[in-house]
Every structure is written in C-alpha cells, then in structure tokens.
Amino acid sequence: MSVTLVLIDACAASPKESRVQGAVQAVPKTAVHRVVVQVNSDDPVIMKHAITNSLNLLKAYGDRNEAAAVEIVAYGAGVNMFREDTSPVKDLLRFLHATHPDVVFSACGNTIAIMERNEGHPLSLVDGARSVPFGVVRLVELQEAGWSYLRP
C-alpha cells in the first residue's frame, strides 16, 4: 500500500494556555476549528487514517484561511502508534510533525505504565509525542472544551 502526501503550510495561530498533566500546553487561540482524533487500535490502517485525516483537515482549513488545531490521542493498543520501537507509522508521524509542529501527539500515561511494567523496560516515544495521565480523560476534557471528536 502506498500513501501519497501533499506538503501543506501550517495554519498560523497564537498560543493560549490549557492545562495538561499539570503543565501548560500551547493551544492555538485563534483556531476556528479544533479537532481531537482518537486512536485506540494497533491497526496500522487506522493509524494512517488518523494521520491523513489530520493532514486533510489542516489542508482544507488552511486553503480557506481558517486556523485549525489538531490533537491525536492514543490509548490502549493505540499507544503503539507513538512508540519509537513499534510504531508502524513512524515515517508518517515524522512528516506530520515536521510540516505541522503544532499538531499534538498525546499518549496515555496509564497505558504506557502498564506496557513498561509488562515489558520490564521504559518506553521511548517518537519525536513530538508526550504523555498525558489518561488518554480517555484527555478526550473528554477536549470535547468538554468544545473540540470536535473524530475516530478513524
């Protein structure tokens, strides 16, 4: 399966503060569209859809000169998407991060802790990924803050 990606410009936005895991997280203040994408499967097709859906959103809104913010939240088996050692979509994530550094990659800290305990070693995440305490809580918080929800 081949994937064709089109290089697109990142949407400009100014920062706004939002609390994540006790730290301040930058969220575009002027974002007209805010979308959270859920990944809870280790199926590479679903992971690719999450990335291409994100790219398509950013391109479509960018073409209309409308700011957009995207966060991909992975939990359960979906955390494999952001693992440096197991991600089947590392190259696509690198592309997404390089072309749209404001896209947030959030991995469930609870799932990471379970994987680390089961595997007996610490996990490394791909560049741009960060841990949040609970992926499902992050999804709820973003939806309660008015973010649109997408599940590929």
Rank of each mutant, 00 (worst) to 15 (best):
E66K: 06
C11K: 00
A50S: 12
L55A: 05
M47G: 08
G76H: 06
V27T: 14
A13H: 08
L57Y: 07
R19Y: 11
D63K: 08
G76N: 08
T4P: 04
S2P: 07
Q25V: 10
Q38D: 03
A69I: 04
A77D: 12
H49R: 13
V32N: 03
E71Q: 15
D9N: 15
R64C: 05
E66W: 01
A69S: 13
R64Y: 00
P28E: 09
N80C: 04
H49D: 09
G22N: 11
A23Y: 12
A68R: 00
P28Q: 12
V27Q: 09
Y75V: 03
V45S: 09
V27S: 07
V79Y: 01
I8A: 13
N65S: 10
V37S: 00
P28F: 08
L58W: 07
P44D: 03
L57M: 04
A23Q: 13
S14C: 10
I51L: 11
A31I: 06
S14Y: 11
V3D: 12
A74R: 01
K29V: 06
V36H: 05
S14E: 15
A12N: 12
S41R: 04
H33T: 00
D43E: 05
K59M: 07
D63M: 10
A10M: 10
L58M: 14
P44C: 02
V32W: 02
A23H: 13
N80Y: 02
N65A: 11
R34T: 05
M47A: 09
R64F: 01
I51M: 05
K16S: 15
K59V: 04
V3L: 15
A67K: 01
A77C: 07
V3M: 13
V24Y: 13
S54L: 03
L58H: 03
V73Y: 08
K48S: 13
A23P: 05
P44R: 02
L58Q: 05
A67Y: 00
N65M: 05
A67P: 00
G22M: 13
I8E: 09
G62W: 02
A69L: 06
